[in-house]
Amino acid sequence: MDPILQNHVNRIAQHLTEGFPEDYLNECGEPMDALDYLQDALDIQYIVDGNRTYLAARVLVAFGGPNIWINTQTGYVEGYWGGEAVEAPFIDNIGIDEALEELWNCY
């Protein structure tokens, strides 16, 4: 297990669970929320049912070494780098799943 990859994944899971540090501010200088965080997403893969109803999503937050996804269906942050895979559980206390559903419903 690569400790750098695991630390990166753990830090993202911690932010989702505990909220962002006070020095994480949005463009207006206000505390960052889930929608602000998603503005920097590299890709979003929506999981929907046959009626196009939102169920969950995977959000790519790092790419090219390592690749890191937030998976709201499983409740894990998943990291991949050089053939290694690590994960860390999170509790969605920042409302990222709700924000993703809101974005999906805008389409």
Rank of each mutant, 00 (worst) to 15 (best):
I47S: 10
A88E: 10
I44Q: 07
I91T: 15
D97T: 13
Y54M: 12
A57N: 12
I70D: 06
I94E: 00
I4V: 06
Q39F: 05
L38E: 03
A85R: 13
Y24V: 12
D36T: 14
M1A: 15
G19L: 09
I4F: 03
D33G: 08
P3M: 07
L60M: 14
N26D: 09
C106D: 15
I44G: 10
Y54R: 08
Y54D: 10
A88W: 04
V48G: 05
E27F: 03
M1N: 14
N26K: 01
G64Q: 01
E87A: 10
E101A: 07
D2E: 09
I70H: 00
M1V: 15
E78N: 15
N10D: 15
I44T: 13
F20I: 06
V48C: 11
E22P: 12
T72A: 10
G65V: 15
P21G: 06
R58K: 15
N51F: 01
Y76G: 05
E78L: 11
A99T: 06
Y80K: 00
I96V: 06
G19S: 12
N67T: 15
G50Q: 09
I70C: 02
Y37C: 05
Y107C: 08
I70R: 05
E22I: 12
E87F: 06
Y46M: 04
H8Y: 05
A62T: 09
F90W: 10
E98H: 03
F63D: 13
I12S: 00
E22Q: 14
D49A: 06
V59D: 01
Y46Q: 13
D33C: 05
N51Q: 10
I44Y: 01
T74A: 08
